[in-house]
């Protein structure tokens, strides 16, 4: 245990408040966009999703990055632990999302084209 206490931790208070400012600004931007819903963003579609939704998702991941890296102190962990955590999650979640959304879209088409009657 000796090496644990031997570490001299300096205060990161300033950095914490900076991250708080970043997270707040990003949340405010999200809320403002969510209320205004600028037309050129909602009407422009990129990879079958509106630009606005892409912005929301990217900003969310940006926030998640700061929470994980700064608050959960992932940046201070060893590379091995960090990769074990981040890549496991990213790989499995992307796979899950891809499969389920593709399937959901397919069922939507089946309903829409009337192959299955469901609204009696």
């Amino acid at each position: 245990m000796a090496h644990d206490t031997a570490h001299q931790h300096e205060s990161n208070t300033k950095k914490i408040w900076t991250v708080f400012a970043i997270l707040s600004v990003v949340t405010i931007v999200e809320v403002v966009l969510g209320i205004l819903k600028p037309e050129f963003l909602t009407d422009t579609s990129f990879l079958s999703m509106s630009l606005l939704n892409w912005i929301f998702i990217i900003l969310t991941i940006y926030k998640a990055y700061y929470i994980a890296w700064s608050f959960m102190h992932l940046e201070g962990e060893t590379k091995g632990l960090r990769r074990a955590i981040v890549w496991t999650a990213i790989f499995l979640i992307s796979y899950l999302i891809f499969i389920l959304l593709t399937e959901g879209g397919y069922i939507y088409e089946v309903y829409k084209n009337g192959y299955v009657a469901w609204d009696f």
């Binding site: 499995l92 999302i97 959304l101 959901g104 939507y108």
Partner: peptide
Amino acid sequence: MWFFIVSDALTFSGFLAAYGFSRFKFMD
């Protein structure tokens, strides 16, 4: 704690992905 968090994160993504599935299914 990290192991638990990763597995719990996968649980939550399972729920959110299922939500996405249902939402795509009733897209309109």
